[in-house]
Design a protein around this nucleic acid. Structure first.
Lengths: 235, 235
DNA sequence: CGCAAAGTTGATCATAGTCAAGTTCTGTGG
DNA sequence: CCACAGAACTTGACTATGATCAACTTTGCG
């Protein structure tokens, strides 16, 4: 409230794209949001850039503003296991608020930008804005719920069902509406990694769905024509 | 501090068994712990009793004092998926601190007792004791980490490796030291459910390990002779 | 045009689930 | 004390799902 007239508001206005929304800011006043944004820094991110590495001390809290990233976890056999997309408005690096290392690796999958807070700023902010703390922990609960879902999927669903699930999820999260369906950029390889099936199983299944007219494939792109059909597929 | 001389301290002394420790109380003063315990109620729990049901509104925060329970998640195909043991000192029902339904089902697997706080008490307590709030969210982070581990295990490990992992985990969590190894109560069926393998795969693998002298089976019990051998097994 | 990344297809194989038909164990009541 | 019911467990045969691999084609870019 004391900061109300400060020039930081101008800085924050440039930081966020118009129409930007994040659950992190839910229930905060415009003034509060400006203060929170002003306390952080903005950083451009590039494709394949690693933003946090599992096991490293958690030093920064992030908010994805534009672009796309993903949570990964390295497995003991050297592969990296896809966990979840990070889309604009999502918060990550929550470990920063506790004295624990990052649990997962976050890697950008296309260029974009993030807001970053260092450890001290982040801790000061949640102390000053109780609602912000609530929002951070809500985000954590969402991740918990998503992980449980992923575990259930991996445990009790077939490769086909998991692929269907991932297509529907992708359509919702990263899809663009077209007159004849929902289109999104996704290589077979990435889809396979998301659903945790082999590249060949993915290719095989997509071919079958294409021949049934449920979707159309092109290089690096999928046009989902009847998502309903897939939804019924994976219950 | 105002409550210091109140008779509630006597009540709390009866509530907790001697030597009881919980990460929930980490860093709290003895007086604070007494106040927190006094604000809650104690309840006996019985084998197979359901303490919270996924999807129900979260009304109570629990701390397991004695006995054993487990987190489960119902799958869409009607089975229940084992997630994790709950042992004395563990906190559950964390959703109570947020306005969301329980994410998982918790069921007692043997009789014991819990401390329970209702929604309002729980929220008041974390407001009064910042360290308590921290501890609650640390617990959440632990669950997150455990879930990620479970997902990695289910995704990148063989049935054999998962069984080995569960035996080692069980030895640590619910095992009793013997001169010739670590013994714990576990039926094949429950072990199978934990490792998410079929009953027959579990039986098969245990037989092999028994013939190699790594463990000894008896009805409902396992005596783990050389855990090291299993540890090396699941990397 | 040529090259690399992306995708296809079909054959083969391994892992672990399913099932049937058993055996052993343990507590209970006659 | 024994019979027996039922739970716990065993064993082996069979099967299905999906991974692996090789050889191939297609696509898009410089």
């Amino acid at each position: 409230m004391i900061d109300e007239g400060k020039p930081v508001s101008a800085a924050s206005a440039t930081a966020l794209p118009p129409g930007f929304r994040s659950s992190l800011f839910e229930g905060l006043t415009h003034t509060e949001i400006e203060a929170v944004v002003a306390a952080g820094g903005q950083r451009r991110i590039f494709s394949n850039q690693v933003l946090q590495q599992e096991g490293d001390p958690a030093t920064h809290l992030f908010l994805l503003v534009t672009g796309r990233a993903a949570f990964y976890k390295h497995t003991s056999d050297g592969r990296k296991l896809f966990l979840q997309w990070i889309v604009p408005g999502d918060t990550f690096g929550l470990s920063t608020l506790q004295r624990v290392p990052y649990l997962t690796t976050v890697q950008a999958v296309r260029e974009g930008s993030v807001l970053v807070w260092d450890r001290d700023s982040a801790r000061a902010l949640v102390r000053q804005h109780p609602r912000l703390r609530e929002n951070v922990y809500s985000a954590m609960t969402c991740y918990l719920a998503a992980l449980i879902d992923a575990l259930v999927a991996r445990t009790s669903q077939t490769a086909q069902q998991r692929l269907a699930r991932m297509l529907v999820e992708s359509a919702r999260q990263i899809g663009r509406a077209r007159h004849d369906g929902i289109e999104f950029d996704l290589t077979n390889e990435r889809l396979a990694e998301m659903a945790d099936v082999s590249l060949f199983t993915a290719s095989h299944q997509l071919s079958e769905w294409q021949s049934r007219g449920i979707l159309t494939k092109s290089r690096g792109k999928i046009l989902l024509r009847s998502p309903e059909h897939l939804v019924s597929h994976h219950f």
